[in-house]
Every structure is written in structure tokens, then in C-alpha cells.
Amino acid sequence: MGGWFVQPHFMSPRLRRQLWIAALLAPALLLLVGFVTLPILSAFVYAFYQWQGLARIGFAGFENFRLILFQEPFSTLTWNAFFHNVVVFVALMVVQNGTAFFLAWMLSKGLRLHRFHQVSLFLPVILSTVIIGFLWKLFLNPLFGLVNQGLIAVGLASWAQPWLGQPSTALASLILVNAWHWVGFPTLVYLAGIQRIPREILEAAEIDGASEWRRITRIVWPLVAPATTIVVILTFIGSFNWFELPYIMSGLEGPPFHTTDVLGLYFYRTAFGTVSSALQDFGRGSALAVLIFLFILAVSAWWVRLLRRREVEF
């Protein structure tokens, strides 16, 4: 057995173990470096050059950054997209994660059929965004869509709207679809958090006559702090990297007239161009990507520290 694996006498067991671990880590590390670290670093480099298609034609210094942050009309588009990312984040925190917390609390009570509800809530999470996007795009079609047809069928024809075609409802529709898709995930995280809370604490509070609202706000909410940290940070990263759903449901330009434009779409348009309007510009595109990356990194790091302080051991 293992004739070739003769252990050289000069290697201590400790060194052998370390080499073994290194050998196991190497493939993953190589992939990570090759497909994550290097592209990120190269984007940093690209951002400082002027580009013509895929050819670098000269060093540009901070020009690309200046263009996207301060030069009209690029700056308006950048801040417009950024603002929408903020809206998406706040709305998802309230709508998606608020609902998730409520659902988790209800599920934790172990009422009848709670298993069934748990599974059905989580079901959309396992579907791909492409499927969800196309499905809801069809549902929301102003002429043939299920939503408008349904409203007309129950006599609410005046409520039928071009949901994705007007500024008042387009972004909200996308956010709601996103919430519908993902609500199962924070629910599960919160549920795990709630189930970790020792029963006796909640029972003691109940015996002391604390109302349900009081138990939620004074006991459950503070004690699920670790779950909240995860949910907030993941929602934050997800909101600022938001791309697939708006891309599939409305398009690269963030229609109508940029009211659903987010940084992800704006980055893609800028860097890779579109068939019918935008030109490729890797310089400005990379500059945008770098800013998005740094923003997410800085805010997440700061926030994790802040949120960790709320967490208590029990």
C-alpha cells in the first residue's frame, strides 16, 4: 500500500502535514487567484488607461474617474444609478427582510403545516434569476400578462398598469419580484437565529406577562443580532451588485428613461457597450467597477464591525 509514498526521513510530521494542507488548498487558491484576484487587480490597472475597443492607447491617470463622477452627462447617470441602488437596498431591507423576520417568527411557533410553508417559501430561492425574471416579465406584460388580466377579470380594469413601463411602478415592481424570489433565504437565516434562542428565556418572559410584541422587540430582535448582521450585509452586497433581474426584466438601459438604472447595468453598458446605442469603453467601465468594489468593500467592513457590536453571547 502506497509504495511510492515513502515518507522522507528528513521531513517532520508537522512539515508533512503543512505540505499536505497546502497541496489541498492549492487548486482552490489557484482558481481564486486566477479568476477573482487577478481580474480585480487588472480592473484597477485598466481604470487608469484610455481605451479604444480592447486596445490600450495611453495612460489616463484619474481621467476615467473624473468623467464618471464629475463630467456631464456621465455623472448624472452615475449618481442616478447609485441612488437607485440605495433605494433598492432600503426597500429590500424593509419589504424583503422585514417580511422574512415576520415569517420566521410565525414559522418558529411550529403551527400546523409550518413545514409545508417553510418549503414553499424557500422554493423560489432555488430557481434561477433568469427563470424568475422571464416569468414575472410575462406576468407583468401590460396586454397579455397575468396580473393585468387578473385585475380586469375581477373588475379592477382601472388598476391595470404598464407595470414595467412607467417610472412610478417600474423600480418598485423589480424590487417586489426580487423580494418574492429571495424572501425565503433571510427567513431561513432568521428562523435559525430564533430557534437558537433558549426556550426558557421566552417562556420566562411569557410567564412574566410580556406581550408578544414586547417579547419580539425586547428578546427576539436583540438575540437574533448575528442573523441580522448576515442578512444586512448580504442584502447590501446584493443590492449594489444588482444586475440580472433588472437586465432580464427591463434591459441594459434601465428603462423607462433610466428610472430602473442601477450601477450594475450602467457598468455593463459602459464597459461592453450595447448593440444599438452604447460604445465599448473599458476605461470608464473599469473605473466604475473599481468604485463599486471599493464602496461595497468599505461599507461592508465598517458595517460588519458596527453590527458585530450588537451581538451578544448567550
Binding site: K137, L143, P162, G165
Partner: peptide
């Protein structure tokens, strides 16, 4: 244009 044309996309 069709009702709700602002939401009518290319395939529709």
C-alpha cells in the same frame, strides 16, 4: 399605440 404601450416591449 396599444394600451399601456410604455410597458410594451419588442417581442410583444
Amino acid at each position: 399605440f396599444p394600451t399601456g404601450f410604455t410597458g410594451v416591449d419588442y417581442p410583444t
